[in-house]
Write a protein that binds this DNA or RNA. Structure first.
Lengths: 211, 211
DNA sequence: CCTCGGTTGTGAAATATTTCACAAGTACCA
DNA sequence: TGGTACTTGTGAAATATTTCACAACCGAGG
């Protein structure tokens, strides 16, 4: 399969997947009902499903459960992925202490930090290791995804270590901007979300530049 | 101005803004040098600046400081925005305790929670109020932006209260999917970022569906 | 069996965005 | 002054994405 879906399509399907997760499998949804739930026009949803290779049905909408299964298989959301966290600061430890549930799709199996004291002191169900062991541990524990929650200046080396360990994807919360041609990297930055939001606001009154 | 820039252009300019912030104003950057820093092709950067209404110069690249000023004025990033946080849980309180700095572009001026005890017990420089006062306080304190960090079932009502107070933009960290035609809303969801990442990974080995 | 109301799936049209390619500007140097 | 080695800005071409519009399908009710 894999006709390489447009990124936005992928993103929308993920969004749909999310609402379907919290819904009775038997619920019957038309593309327009679904559209209202996720703020996407009905025809876009239909097109997305169409290019993604849809399922059978005609008429009468989609059964939540079937749609869920379809997307799950499409993106192989079935087998749980093993995740590690680099940087056991405020943010990093919150991932370790309050792991995302999401039906067991992700399992946090290791934490890393350069600060050995932190590793020894912190209590956690997840095993913690010093950062220099990262590549080896990632191989050993067959880790798929990495979350980077280290300071900016350590981000690059952390990514390198993760790559060396053979990680497939990285979610980067550090202020550094990471990217790589071999693996999927996604940068997330709170302040920038706020900034983007600000930039998108039609007109923030203020002296109203011209009119 | 405002020719309504493409969303992606806005997003890229914000990214560029971020790297410029952490850079000496005198640094001279060519579009390709800049491109490497943010993982964007040079011609896309030039085009973005072009449609955004660019500045003067030809030759010899951009001075970091000038570019910064250009983007700042373009999006009116100058006057600081007043931000409030709804939901003083783990995430919400982290915003209050460790406010984003970003050169004072955002100031957190209030927190809200339905749980009165929490409000009374928690120590914080930022004043905390009960949720039902939200609309009034937002008006009173002239708050521009809201961060929603409440549980899913409270998200909708929180948005309504914020709208009622006249807020211009919302950054929603709750699992609910929010949207509104009048104000800018941005949904952020960690698990979904992981999921999106997973979906984007070319081939996560696994039984390798076909080939 | 036929029609009505509602829904999907999808080619084709309409838009939007990215990429290209190149004229034109600038500095430097001799 | 002329030549070299950069770089930008941008119209036009190439792509990508979204929107439209409509045939086809289904179930229910005569």
């Amino acid at each position: 399969m894999s006709v390489q879906l447009p990124v936005q399509t992928v993103s929308r399907l993920c969004l749909i997947y999310r609402v379907l997760l919290g819904m009775d499998r038997e619920t019957l949804l038309s593309s327009s009902k679904l559209g209202k739930l996720v703020n996407i026009p009905a025809h876009t949803i239909r097109k997305d499903l169409s290019v993604a290779g849809k399922l059978k049905s005609s008429n009468a909408g989609y059964k939540a459960g079937e749609l869920l299964d379809f997307i799950r298989e499409l993106f192989r959301f079935d087998s749980p992925l093993r995740v590690c966290v680099a940087g056991i600061g405020l943010l990093g430890s919150s991932f370790i202490k309050n792991p995302v549930q999401e039906g067991g799709q992700f399992i946090i199996v290791a934490g890393f930090d350069t600060n050995i004291n932190k590793i020894e002191v912190m209590k956690s169900d997840v095993p913690l290791f010093p950062a220099y062991e990262m590549a080896d541990r990632i191989k050993e524990l067959k880790i798929d995804l990495g979350i980077i929650a280290v300071p900016a200046q350590a981000a690059e080396i952390t990514m390198q270590r993760m790559k060396e360990g053979g990680i497939k994807g990285i979610l980067n919360f550090s202020p550094a901007i990471l990217g790589d041609k071999d693996i999927a990297v996604r940068n997330v930055h709170f302040a920038e979300e706020l900034r983007f939001l600000t930039a998108m606001i039609p007109d923030l009154e203020k002296g109203v530049k011209n009119g």
